[in-house]
Computed example of a mutant assay.
Amino acid sequence: MLKIGIFAALSLLSVVSAEFASQQFNEFANRSKGHTNNWAVLVDTSRFWFNYRHVANVLSIYRSVKRLGIPDSQIILMIADDMACNPRNPRPATVFNNANQHINVYGDDVEVDYRGYEVTVENFVRLLTGRLLPSTPRSKQLLTDEGSNILIYLTGHGGDGFLKFQDSEEITSQEMADALEQMWQKQRYHEIFFMIDTCQAASMYERFYSPNILAVGSSLVGEDSLSHHVDPAIGVYIIDRYTYYALEFLESVSLDSTKSMGEFLQVCPKRVCISTVGVRNDLFRRNPYKVPITDFFGSVRPIEFIEELVNTTLVPYEQTKIVGNDISKFKYVPPLTFT
């Protein structure tokens, strides 16, 4: 009797497992139609003047994705400290990522969505998962769907399994992984490219378990990420090594570029980065070398083609014009219309 009961239980378990697998397959099939839009979430988690480079990091990526077509309405920019307005900045209203001052990455059209003490772990997680108050302005919301490819870029100070926010709190790798899983379950993304420039960066993506995520970190567990160079006029490091070489690569990318994500993942070999760049692609279904870099750093804009003939013929007709006591008729050509 006991053997029969065990056999029945195992049979039921097999049926449940098969049904679950079938549901998972159907979910992937329904969500594999391709992506239709691009978003970017760019976060600097550091405060204080000596962390100038972290603001330069995030603004450099911001400038690149805007140049490649992602509009401000689809970029969430979080900056914990505004270096452009810092009283120690000898060039007010500017942020440079190079000592030669080639590019002012602050520019004149930067739209910061979360500033200063708004850059918290709670706000970041709520942003990703969509658990914001109804009164939250549209500009502070991540309005993604199952067709959205999302670039998530983080920079700041981190350790083994955590990233600090403003030296007062931290987000752990497990919290990050759970937030992404909530996004997947709520159909808030199609694919994610997770990019982090911090010490022991690879530890932040080790616990990911949601599908369609490609991740890269500037350093492995136990390694520090290093700065690139100092600007003597400012007296601090102004960009980190990994982001510096990533930006150098992105500057060569155009809207019709054939460069791939696989190439981008190789931008900072150890001989120049000093730290070891880590990559995780086991959750990602596509070959990174066959994924255009513009799938994450550019913008997809659906176009609907109409095969029907369009009549654009302009038909002039007579119209009467009265000026004082004079009545005259003239040919009137209407504005261009489509039928």
Score class of each variant (00 low, 15 high):
R188C: 08
M195F: 15
L163Q: 00
R138K: 15
Q187C: 12
L142V: 03
L132Y: 00
E122T: 06
R115D: 03
G159I: 03
E170M: 12
S139M: 11
E223F: 05
E146W: 08
R126E: 03
L132P: 00
L163P: 00
T129V: 12
R131V: 01
E169G: 04
T120Y: 11
Y205T: 01
D178Y: 00
C199T: 10
R188T: 02
R126Q: 10
F124N: 10
M195L: 15
H157P: 11
L143D: 14
G159M: 06
Y209A: 14
E146I: 05
Q187G: 06
A202M: 03
K140W: 05
Q166I: 04
S139F: 09
G156I: 05
T136H: 13
L128H: 07
L226E: 13
A202R: 08
E169N: 07
S148I: 05
L151G: 10
Q174C: 06
E169R: 06
R138T: 14
R207D: 13
W184Y: 10
L128P: 04
G222Y: 05
M204R: 05
Q187I: 05
A215C: 03
S148G: 07
E111V: 12
K140A: 06
G156L: 11
S219W: 01
S219Q: 09
N149Y: 10
L133S: 09
E122V: 02
I196V: 13
G130N: 08
Y189G: 13
Q187R: 15
G217E: 01
I171D: 00
T144R: 08
G161W: 00
E111G: 08
D108W: 08
E206I: 01
P137Y: 11
F194Y: 07
D108M: 13
L154S: 12
T144K: 01
F194S: 06
K140V: 04
T129I: 04
F194M: 07
E206N: 11
L143F: 09
F194V: 01
Q174M: 12
H157Y: 11
L220W: 01
G116H: 13
P137M: 14
S219G: 09
Y117M: 10
R126C: 11
V112H: 03
T198A: 14
K164E: 07
I171Q: 01
L127N: 03
D113W: 04
L220M: 14
T120L: 06
W184D: 09
E122M: 00
K140L: 09
P134R: 13
Q185T: 10
E118Y: 01
L154P: 10
V221M: 03
L127Q: 03
Y114W: 05
E223D: 03
